[in-house]
Design a protein around this nucleic acid. Structure first.
Lengths: 215, 215
DNA sequence: ATCAACTTTTTGTGATCACAAAACAAGTTT
DNA sequence: AAACTTGTTTTGTGATCACAAAAAGTTGAT
């Protein structure tokens, strides 16, 4: 898919991004440039640029000390993210709807099955990846770079915290809104689809909020 | 206000940001790191990081050639930005409303007067700065970093294009929605305020859209 | 004149170095 | 024990260098 080989810069960015998004880096723990450089076997230079980029995307924070870390979640910030997601994601999903054909629906069903299996196995990262894939497979169909990058930033912001909360999945007994969404998609029912995405999002955020410890 | 002196990195970022936001850099024209470095009298290093940051904020684009430029506007992208703004900004304005006291209202009125004067003098940059100040003085009162940074990214994206369109202001005869907004603010009328922001935004975007040449 | 091939210059990338500020760790004093 | 010094280490910052890829410029053939 990618014709030209990735620059070191790009590959370190993606590596860090994955770590953040799926919970390999927990909030609060400090991050050092040289440490990351060594762990990824590159020089500090591309690390610095990747870190700067992630700071711009709000996935990382730079304190007055010039020290970098995953931002700690606060109740206030959590509600801000929740609101922003509710404003953008259902809308983005609707934009995507007309572009999703039967093959797309099948792909979503497959992702959903994979996600369910991860839940059964108490595989937290697998669940998070599945959830991410489900949503962004939909969102990408909207082919709206502007909205997509905004939403992307939001996921980068609550991802680490989500992982912090989802230590174990066995306690979760959620309605599978993903299934409701795919059904609405198959029926081409815009309202039901938008509602399903909204409820999925609300359900997830409410669960995280309720399970919080230090928030 | 800022206790510690700015790093070179931060000051170059702000300088570039201002240039982009208020139209000193027009879409399409290529940008070179060494060129920026020389024009700001710093080494390429801080420039690279600032540019990366601005790329992450979608204010700049990197092509496959690895060449950087202000993104060219397309009709599609313009509509995406318009939609995103409509989803976020009225909401953000409402969040801010309760925190704006009489002093805040007076500040807004003053900004608005300054803006009107800029229009009279056909001072495009002054108008753009005034418009920016008006909106972000409101938005900052919401004290929602999450939403604010999303909106900030959107302004960085349409700023250069706005300037491209607003070559002269004399042809503009717009209702002053800012005045409507401040009046609603004084009356503590949430609905009227939200509407005023929305209409101001729609009016501006419609004007830009209609005046476009190559979009 | 037009286009191709070659040469030169420019540009982004990534590594390395010097430096100052911050964090750390003992050791000392109160 | 707690708080303050002092010396050491770690860390981010900014500049510089080498290198490869891309642009630009030049020459030559058709």
């Amino acid at each position: 898919m990618q014709s030209s080989p990735l620059t070191v810069n790009e590959s370190t960015y993606r590596a860090l991004r994955e770590k953040i998004l799926f919970g390999d880096m927990l909030p609060g723990r400090p991050v050092t440039l040289r440490g990351l450089a060594e762990s990824l076997n590159v020089s500090p230079t591309p690390i610095r640029e990747s870190v700067r980029r992630l700071i711009a995307e709000r996935a990382l924070t730079m304190h007055d000390n010039r020290r970098v870390s995953i931002p700690v979640m606060t109740a206030k910030r959590f509600q801000e993210i929740r609101l922003a997601r509710l404003l953008l994601e259902p809308e983005l999903a609707c934009l995507a709807m007309s572009s999703i054909d039967q093959a797309g629906i099948n792909e979503l069903i497959e992702i959903d099955l994979k996600t369910d299996k991860a839940v059964e196995n108490d595989d937290v990262e697998g669940y998070m990846r599945g959830n991410y894939d489900f949503h962004f497979t939909i969102y990408r169909h909207a082919s709206s770079d502007v909205l997509l990058s905004l939403v992307d930033s939001l996921w980068l912001q609550f991802g680490p915290y989500m992982r912090q909360v989802y230590n174990h999945l066995d306690s979760i007994t959620l309605d599978d809104k993903h299934r409701v969404a795919t059904r609405a998609l198959k029926n081409n029912d815009v309202i039901a689809f938008k509602n399903a995405i909204m409820e999925d999002l609300q359900q997830g955020m409410t669960y995280i909020d309720a399970s919080n410890s230090d928030l």
